[in-house]
């Protein structure tokens, strides 16, 4: 029984990391019309920033804050210089971002080599309750993810900015008539999603060592979560993340371990066939605006 409970706890932890990444992607992919496949590299840079700060004596919290700031700034610079030129043709953004993946990876490698980087665990304790082991750092990640989800959700559904954003997504021209500076909102969402990637990177390196190459694996899962949940739908991303996390945990625990990824992908395909708009519905994604 403890084994099963342990697997449930494991799933929650797996899910929280995926959700953190998925929210950034669903917002950007669903609401701004920008396709950025280098989102995984943003996460990697967030992790590397945290590592840099910590390995030079800074605390983990400082490192995480730096990760959020650095990647948010990176998002701002790239959006202003590159991605905003692709808003009429989102596919160009996709191609550009593929090139960006290589550029970002190699810039990092050039200055900090391609070896694995690690930091000492910010929270080292492990609690044992009835045979189930709960790792403090993982619980912290779940908590942080929950906070981020709450903030994002309420910002979008209750705040003036969220209202203007939803209006811009629904009808860009009419929103502009109301005085909404739509381009600035696109930049804002892109920065927010990028900052979340930075935070995700800090969480990731807090949990395990990273290399400059972790981006590609992560980004696929993030896009999967965004698509399954419904593009632009925060609640959808949470639900999709939980479903995938559970699938991962249980299939690894009780299915054929080599097929862990296959089970998740099979589930995704099934969901998208039955509900192409995602579990909770969302936008149609990037289109020429």
């Amino acid at each position: 029984m403890e084994i099963f409970l342990q697997q449930l706890i494991n799933s929650l932890s797996v899910a929280s990391v995926i959700i953190l990444i998925g929210i950034g992607i669903t917002l950007i992919f669903g609401l701004t019309g920008i396709i950025n496949f280098a989102h995984g590299e943003f996460l990697m840079i967030g992790g590397m920033t945290t590592w840099l700060v910590v390995s030079h004596g800074g605390g983990f919290l400082l490192g995480a804050a730096a990760a959020v700031a650095v990647v948010g700034a990176l998002g701002f610079v790239l959006e202003r210089s590159l991605f905003r030129l692709t808003l009429d043709r989102p596919m160009n953004g996709f191609i550009i971002s593929l090139g960006l993946i290589v550029v970002l990876q190699h810039v990092v490698i050039r200055f900090w080599n391609s070896y694995q980087k690690a930091i000492p665990q910010p929270l080292a304790s492990v609690w044992e309750i009835g045979g189930v082991r709960i790792v403090a750092m993982r619980a912290a990640v779940v908590l942080i993810t929950a906070v981020v989800v709450a903030i994002t959700f309420f910002a979008i559904s209750r705040s003036r900015y969220g209202l203007a954003l939803r209006a811009s997504v629904a009808d860009q021209e009419t929103a502009a008539l109301m005085g909404v500076p739509v381009r600035r909102y696109i930049t804002g969402v892109f920065i927010y999603g990028s900052a979340l990637a930075g935070l995700g990177g800090a969480m990731m390196i807090a949990l395990f060592p990273i290399t400059p190459f972790i981006g590609s694996v992560i980004v696929v899962r993030g896009f999967a979560v965004a698509l399954i949940g419904g593009l632009g739908n925060v609640a959808g991303a949470v639900l999709a993340g939980l479903v995938l996390g559970l699938m991962d945990g249980l299939s690894a625990g009780y299915g054929l371990p080599e097929w862990t990824e296959a089970y998740s992908f099979a589930l995704m395909i099934l969901i998208l066939l039955l509900r192409p708009q995602g579990l909770l519905g969302g936008t149609a994604g990037p289109k020429a605006i």
Binding site: L163, R166, A167, E173, L177, M178, G179, V180
Partner: peptide, 26 residues
């Protein structure tokens, strides 16, 4: 100078209240 566009163009997925609130965005 405020425009009420042709075809209404109200935000179908936002509530009536939210539509009104958006009108005051500026």
């Amino acid at each position: 100078v405020v425009m009420v566009p042709e075809g209404r163009r109200i935000f179908a997925d936002l509530t009536v209240r939210e539509n009104l609130r958006l009108g005051a965005y500026a």
